[in-house]
Amino acid sequence: MAASSPHLSQLVNPLVSVDQLASSGSQLDGVPSDLESSCIYAGAQLMQIAGILLRLPQDIIAQAIVIFSRFWIGSDGGSLREFGVKDVSLASIYLMVKLSAYPKAPRSVINVFGYLDSFHSTLGDLKGHVDTNNPESYYVSEGTYVAQRAQLTKMETIILKVLGFQTHVALPYNICINYLQALDVFVDHETASHLAKRAFAHLNSALLSPQLLYLTHQPPALATAAIYLSAKETGVKLPDAEWWEVFDTDREELGFLVVAMISMEDFVKEENVKWENRKAPSTLIEMENELERKATANGHH
């Protein structure tokens, strides 16, 4: 893509191929696809929370989540039986933070993940955990830190290699605003800002989509779909013409993305039910235990 449109290269993402979507390292290693989706979703959500605790801007967090998602894709991608979700999410954040204008020390990142690790559930209600604040439960000793930092740097290199050292991630947030301006939505600021907020919310949710929308669609399509959907929700009237065509998105793609974004709500509800009182496996050991548990359960059937 870079060659064909050099000047746009910063706005374009490398997308997954059909082959890469057809299988993944995890599936090849025997991880059921639903469990895989749960793990990746949990990891992405963990990163979102960690990013907030690290006081990172959302675009850095989003880039890290995209990198994290790319890591698991395709038969060449990382396998959940080879790499723990927590390690990969931690290294993904660290890697993207390193490239950003908001550097964080490895210690900060490890501390945050140590804190989040003390929660009994990544997906459930976090409030209870926060209320029972027990520093001892998340204190990262020097020894642990050194070990984790070693693991972090190792994981970082592995991620880079799996990604072919492609760390560029284009995001739809900026162009989403541009598109809204182009659509003259901001004439009425109150509704427009409401609309923009909804659109951003959809873009943020889409980051966690099990359909890996950020890996399958370019930022303009994502932005267009988010605008379309939030305009429907907020009752803002957009041009009658097929305006999305202007933003390089055809009707079919728009429809797919809108449905996918709408489906996020149900997906999250299901996940929350599924993992209400426990954590999706975030380490190799937890993964093995989970697989064993599943096997046993299936055996009973």
Binding site: V16, A22, L28, P32, S33
Partner: peptide
């Protein structure tokens, strides 16, 4: 979902 369809095919690859 990409992954879902993949599940079956996974065996092949």
């Amino acid at each position: 979902m990409a992954s879902t369809p993949a599940a079956t095919p996974a065996a092949t690859p």
